[in-house]
């Protein structure tokens, strides 16, 4: 694994930890973590004469969040895993061959 990939993975792990921690802290302190300022303004707009805000997917299924999170997570994971090498292979070092190679498309 080259240095850039290692640093990128470390950054991703730190970001995940920060996202989870900030979510739990925000939830514990009652900071409206699910909607936030967007929900606040949507409610304000509805109260100020706009149409009633609603979630279209709610009419399809009430479990859309679980399905959505699951499918996005799976698609994102497979996509990143599959495309990672292709994205960064141009100058990445191919290890285990006793030498450094530079691979290019075209």
């Amino acid at each position: 694994m080259d240095k850039f990939t290692k640093n990128a993975l470390i950054a991703c792990a730190l970001l995940c930890a920060f996202i989870i921690t900030s979510f739990y802290v925000g939830t514990a302190l009652g900071f409206n973590m699910s909607g936030g300022a967007d929900d606040k303004v949507n409610s304000l707009a509805t109260a100020d004469g706009g149409g009633q805000a609603h979630d279209s997917w709610y009419y399809v299924t009430q479990n859309m969040e679980y399905i959505g999170f699951g499918s996005i997570g799976m698609a994102g994971g497979f996509l990143c895993g599959y495309l990672w090498v292709m994205t960064f292979e141009e100058t990445s070092n191919i290890q285990g061959q006793g030498k450094t190679e530079v691979t290019r498309h075209n």
Binding site: I19, S22, F23, V25, G26, L29, G30, F31, N32, M33, S34, G36, A37, D38, K40, I72, G76, L79, C80, L83, W84, M86, T87
Partner: peptide, 29 residues
């Protein structure tokens, strides 16, 4: 294309990532 896919994934995560803001007692992304 793979670079664009990675950037899309980054935008997806960043723009749905609610960060608590203690001063206002709310959160945004």
């Amino acid at each position: 294309l793979p670079m664009l896919a990675l950037m899309s994934a980054a935008v997806l995560v960043i723009s749905v990532w609610h960060v608590p803001v203690p001063v206002t007692g709310s959160s945004s992304h």
